[in-house]
Design a protein around this nucleic acid. Structure first.
Lengths: 153, 153
DNA sequence: GGGCGGTTGGTGACATGTCAACAACGGGTA
DNA sequence: TACCCGTTGTTGACATGTCACCAACCGCCC
């Protein structure tokens, strides 16, 4: 390997800042979510994704793809959420392998009660601290990074 | 609770973008790190923090504080890293409870070999995709969020 | 129809993180 | 000195995530 191009001061500060913000924000939002609603980040993500679909149901593979989770991880987690009554599994008409994940009544109530607290938490710890320009910059840069990471070379 | 202040379109886009970038970036950088150096994120963080101290050693509590890890988590992880010869534990002169974490020769070699690849990975997937203004914005906003989260009300 | 490669979701073994409890110790105080 | 209270690091039980593997299934081709 040739001489590595180390980060300059500004880049290093930004990268470390990003990493630290990421860690602290995660801890705080996870804590808020647990206190306010008794849900984990993972629970919230699953419920949120399900509640945003038309008939509140999704194929496991599709849900896993959207969430960037492995099918294995999702299957394990769903088993636990199913035991708590937040989701259910249905057979898939037309594909006997398939499993359709359904948001239950209790699951819907859970996400609807959690959402306002969660938004408040996100605002308090992040969004409301940013200027309009910063929101725009964050949006632009994050989508550029996403595009790069999801576009085959 | 009064009517929640939902995020507007721009805010929601930025928030979702941030979350997705965070997830994708994590996956990719973890993958690169494993492929290039056989280290996990956690390994790299521990080694990195240790290598940046003067005599390559830190009290467990101090290291845990810096990394925002629980002492328990760190202790468990150090046990595993110690078995791989990357770190070692020394008794603390002056405080018989204390445990001092030391970077071993092998640990130092590991981080020195990993660092160039890691920087390249960080550049490729994030830093080099950003304009100077975006770097500055990311730095500013992240440190504002950090300050808010680390300043007692 | 029968076979074949790829897909789907689940499972068990294992790696990792969380949480509560604990023994051992430090440092102030009377 | 003896006590008390907080700190330190470890541990075990448990929750969660990863990985390799598998049976069942799909769609396609012959």
């Amino acid at each position: 390997m040739t001489e590595p191009r180390w980060l300059d001061d500004k880049q290093a500060r930004a990268w470390r800042g990003y990493r630290r913000m990421r860690a602290l924000l995660d801890l705080q939002i996870t804590r808020d979510l647990a206190n306010d609603s008794g849900l984990s980040d993972a629970d919230y993500d699953v419920l949120s994704n399900l509640s945003e679909t038309s008939p509140h149901r999704l194929r496991l593979t599709e849900l896993a793809g959207t969430m960037l989770w492995s099918k294995s991880r999702l299957s394990h987690h769903l088993t636990r959420m199913q035991q708590r009554g937040l989701v259910d599994r249905e057979e898939c008409a037309g594909d006997a392998r398939g499993s359709i994940i359904v948001l239950t009544e209790a699951g819907l109530r859970a996400i609807e009660e959690a959402a306002p607290h969660h938004v408040a938490s996100v605002r308090r710890h992040m969004i409301d601290l940013l200027t309009d320009d910063e929101i725009a910059a964050l949006d632009a840069l994050s989508h550029r990074v996403i595009t790069r990471l999801t576009t085959p070379t």
